[in-house]
Design a protein around this nucleic acid. Structure first.
Lengths: 349, 349
DNA sequence: TAGAGCCTGGACAACGTTGTCAGGTGCGCG
DNA sequence: CGCGCACCTGACAACGTTGTCCAGGCTCTA
């Protein structure tokens, strides 16, 4: 008995009205399979007449090339992955968009996912993207151990980290100058006469938060001001806790006269607290945010260019892809102090 | 002469250090190819001992399943596409994130792209996603003719449109109640005593803009107020033009006493213009935005829930995928008027 | 007009995975 | 002790595409 082709195997697990393939197009146009491939890919060596026939068959059948099969054959997917913390965070929108634009200019698509600041989820996502055989990966780390990516990198997946460095592996990373930015911001407050300056920021295990704290300390030390513990509030993330921390600093016997906010979420909450109180307190925040100029007073910030972070990272990624291996590098982008009023208030009381 | 395996063909176009395949794992573990497949996919029917040997080989080689090949074989990609206007726009961040979460809960990845409000680019993107064989497509239309998607939909690509309806094809669409929201917002102004109310909005060829304009007219008509042409400014997009339009309305002999802003970009610019002037003008904006409550006065808005739009659309998409074909439906989500002060100002002058 | 060379088109294998089926082993039961 | 059954395991084809090679027809030149 001859082997039978098992009908049920022809389209396993598919509910689709079978899509036409190149074979179908070839049959309809009365040409060979490879000729269709040539037409679809614009390869030379097809007479105009044949090309026309093939094109007609394509249109008639509504054929669209199956890129999965193409990828399988060619080894490259023309897509890159982006793992970030939260797409809904306004900081990451422009970053993501910038990565997308660079990808687009290289003919690649962008697949992205949010880690929700969960290391395990970051890992899952990154590995899922690798299983899809993305050509490269841009990662905004949530975790601090990225050794799980070693086999992937060895296998040729270009990888660039953004915003925070990779943990326990040597890889390209693009950062803002968190230390310098924070130091400048705090120095700005000091220059306007403040000495009791509060710092509210994220957990120091997060690299950016640690660097900004270091910047704060450096500026204070440069000015010869000893920092008191009660001026610093670390690991504060939820709006409620930021609120409480700010209120505490402001209700001491010798309250702070200025606050440096470690990121935009903190800044916004502090603005709210200050708006409720009567005392005039200076404020500089890390990260710019929309409408900061419309508040009264306008909020002085240390701005980082999130689009530039994304663009730089993506360009670096494609340089890896085009040029083969290059030594991992750490690229630091400058921040910019934008004065709008809140940071120039003199100490009150 | 026997056929030779052409070495150059083994890894066409690939610069990778060859990735291990199931075959390699099988060889190393001393088992058959299919057994590896079974272990990788957690299929039953493998002795614990065999499983352990395979697992060790997997770890040793750093094997990761090639999902492209899997997709080719299975017909489903477990990924969906999202075509939106601009990821960097704060309105789309939460929407995109909501789609991602739903996708994730269905085990799917999200591939997204920005059309930059260009119909041709929308088309390219959507078709590129189809070529990747995404299982479904969520589209925020930039163009107004989506017949190009017909073959795809026929071939089984689930499709849902969001924010604006599809053009010239019959498909699922999830919208905000733009008409009702705008009517309520304008009625709110009328209820606070305004009669000369300006409207600044986008080009009426954009569905949302047209609907909001219709809502404005309806509210005015309900109140028996004849609308004057000079109160309406349509097709205004750039901040400069919004600025000019607002200034004109306010410098008429009989200036408007209130403005209804057709979207968040317009609202923000109008806030700026009003902040510069001395006259007190009421304002209601369509779309909420961060910090609207922190401005003085707080900005009253008609809020749409962009996350709910995304969530609803994605859920609908997966219902299509799970349940087969269902009749296209138009789902309209309610908007919510949030009063914060700017919309409750009485007419001045 | 014959031969050389070019151009077009097609046959075939291979990419890495999964579904199907068949073979083999060991165990329990009669 | 033998038969049947359950359970593992592996061989094989197929998914849709592209790279390579070859065949055949054409043109051009000597």
């Amino acid at each position: 008995m001859p082997k039978t082709t098992h009908r049920a195997d022809r389209h396993p697990g598919s509910r689709y009205g079978n899509r036409p393939t190149m074979k179908d197009v070839a049959a309809r146009a009365g040409v060979g399979l490879k000729t269709v491939s040539r037409v679809v890919n614009g390869e030379p060596g097809v007479t105009p007449d044949t090309e026309r026939r093939v094109q007609e068959a394509i249109d008639a059948l509504g054929f669209r090339r199956n890129d999965s099969a193409r990828v399988l054959r060619k080894g490259r997917t023309a897509s890159i992955g982006l793992v970030l913390e939260d797409l809904a965070d306004p900081f990451y929108g422009p970053l993501s968009r910038a990565v997308e634009e660079v990808a687009r200019s290289h003919g690649a698509l962008l697949i992205n996912g949010s880690s929700a600041e969960d290391p395990e989820r970051e890992r899952e996502l990154a590995l899922a993207l690798c299983a899809r055989r993305v050509d490269g990966l841009v990662v905004i780390p949530a975790g601090d151990d990225h050794r799980y990516l070693e086999p992937e990198i060895r296998a040729g997946v270009a990888t660039v980290f953004v915003d925070r460095p990779a943990g326990r592996i040597d890889a390209d990373v693009v950062l803002s100058d968190n230390f310098g930015g924070a130091r400048d911001g705090v120095a700005h407050l000091i220059a306007h006469g403040h000495r009791r300056i509060g710092f509210i920021g994220d957990m120091p295990r997060i690299h950016t938060a640690a660097e900004r704290l270091r910047g704060y300390r450096a500026a204070m030390e440069d000015a010869g001001i000893p920092v008191e513990d009660r001026w610093m509030s670390l690991g504060v993330t939820s709006p409620e806790r930021v609120r409480r921390a700010a209120q505490e600093m402001l209700s001491e016997p010798e309250p702070v006269t200025a606050v440096f906010a470690g990121n935009n979420r903190v800044t916004v909450t502090v603005v709210r607290v200050l708006a409720e109180g009567s005392r005039q307190v200076a404020l500089v925040g890390f990260d710019d945010f929309e409408l900061a100029d419309l508040l009264r007073p306008g909020v002085t910030v240390v701005a980082q260019d999130s689009a530039a972070l994304g663009r730089t990272a993506a360009e670096r990624l494609f340089r890896q892809l085009d040029g083969g291996l290059i030594a991992p590098e750490r690229i630091e982008l400058p921040t910019r102090l934008i004065t709008r009023g809140s940071g120039e208030l003199p100490p009150a009381g």
